[in-house]
Amino acid sequence: MGFPQRRMRRLRRSGTVRRMVRETWVRPDDLILPLFVRPGRGVREPVASMPGVDRWSVDRVVEPAREAFELGVPAVILFGLPEGKDEEGSEAWAEEGVVQQAVRRLKAELPELVVVTDVCLCEYTSHGHCGLLQGERVANDPTLDRLARTALSHARAGVDWVAPSDMMDGRVAAIRRALDEAGFDDVSILAYSAKYASAFYGPFREAAESAPAFGDRRGYQMDPANAREALLEVDLDVAEGADLVMVKPALPYLDVIRQVRERVGLPVAAYQVSGEYAMLRAAGMQGWIDERQAFLESLTAIRRAGADLILTYYATEFARLWREGLGG
């Protein structure tokens, strides 16, 4: 039936009714907070290109994690800045590396918090690439052993999930095999399955000090023009033993999130990356947009596209709004 029998506005006139018929909800339970961990003591260091985001020393990283957790955010993902870098990125798997120390501290003080660790070499290599080099080319197969060693060191520290973000072929299988053989078959793998070679990573590379010293990462990260390829990447990671899959970035790739959601039965995560956050924050600081409404709308769009989980720097801020009854 058409107008006047069908009046769509009837269910929009009241805020209470709008909430009752809302199709898509974002809750604190759906979010994962990224945290940057660096050497030193007593450090809380702002990231210039990401206002509101800080680098934390191991002795203080519990502070933002506890705040988020007490507001209902169930998980954090850790990115490490090492004491030193070398060609191999050996600090990535050091038993006393910053991430390994942070995992132990977080699990000791917040045992119910789900702790996730990024597994990649880019923050740890002197050249800034995500794997070992042969000349100026990233060598896929030799890198797999280092990634597996890194994941295993995180498992020994007590991590709940490892999240390989390197985009090397076969890395999920290598990590799953290493974890299982060492008795860590209960550690989950959140695979960065469709990680695009995106312009939206710039602020993260400042925060993690991980910009490549030469070239770029298009030889192993995905072409932004390709969606069918993302589905193949997801299929491969699922076959290799991934427990969850991820699309990164989120907002420019909502179509990919939707296709992945329709493809697999596993939980699907999406990463609202540093560039997405920085754009919203900067525009809000300038008064050009209503930042709160914009990030709420963005998170809703990501969920509506099909993401079960969202990695976002807005996690704590969203959870605070939710606690105040404003998040919906």
Rank of each mutant, 00 (worst) to 15 (best):
V21S: 03
V26Q: 06
L280K: 01
L280Q: 01
D29E: 15
Q134R: 15
E181Y: 08
A102G: 12
T117P: 02
V62N: 02
R228S: 13
H127F: 08
C120F: 06
A108D: 14
D59V: 01
R105S: 14
P252F: 10
Q272K: 01
R38L: 12
A227P: 00
A163I: 03
D186T: 05
L280I: 13
L309Y: 13
G158Q: 02
G128V: 02
N140E: 05
A48W: 12
K85I: 11
A239M: 13
A269C: 04
R228E: 15
L31M: 07
R104I: 14
K195S: 05
D118L: 01
R60W: 12
E262K: 13
P203H: 05
G202C: 02
V58L: 02
I310M: 13
Q221I: 02
V247H: 04
D223T: 07
S188Q: 13
M222C: 07
A307N: 10
L244I: 15
L231V: 08
F3E: 14
D255C: 13
S165V: 04
L179T: 03
E87L: 10
G97R: 07
R156N: 09
R44W: 13
T150H: 03
H129V: 03
P34D: 11
R104Y: 08
P164K: 08
E229G: 01
L251H: 11
V172E: 04
G128W: 06
L190V: 07
L35D: 11
A68T: 05
G265T: 00
L106D: 02
L309D: 08
S14W: 08
L244K: 09
D290P: 00
Y220C: 07
A294F: 01
R205V: 07
R41T: 14
W322F: 14
S57A: 11
L35S: 12
R171V: 03
P111M: 10
E70K: 06
M285F: 00
G97E: 09
L81G: 02
Y277E: 03
D308T: 11
Q293I: 08
D186V: 01
V114K: 12
F3Q: 13
V76R: 00
P267Y: 12
V47R: 04
R156Y: 12
D141Q: 15
L71M: 02
G84N: 11
G241A: 07
E96A: 14
Q286D: 12
M20P: 15
Y192E: 12
E95L: 03
P203W: 00
A197V: 06
E91C: 04
A269R: 01
G170C: 00
V58E: 01
D166C: 14
I175E: 15
G306D: 05
V187Y: 04
G40A: 08
A108V: 00
L296V: 10
R261P: 05
E229K: 01
D169C: 13
R304P: 06
V159S: 00
Q221V: 02
S188F: 00
A319P: 05
V37S: 07
G183T: 02
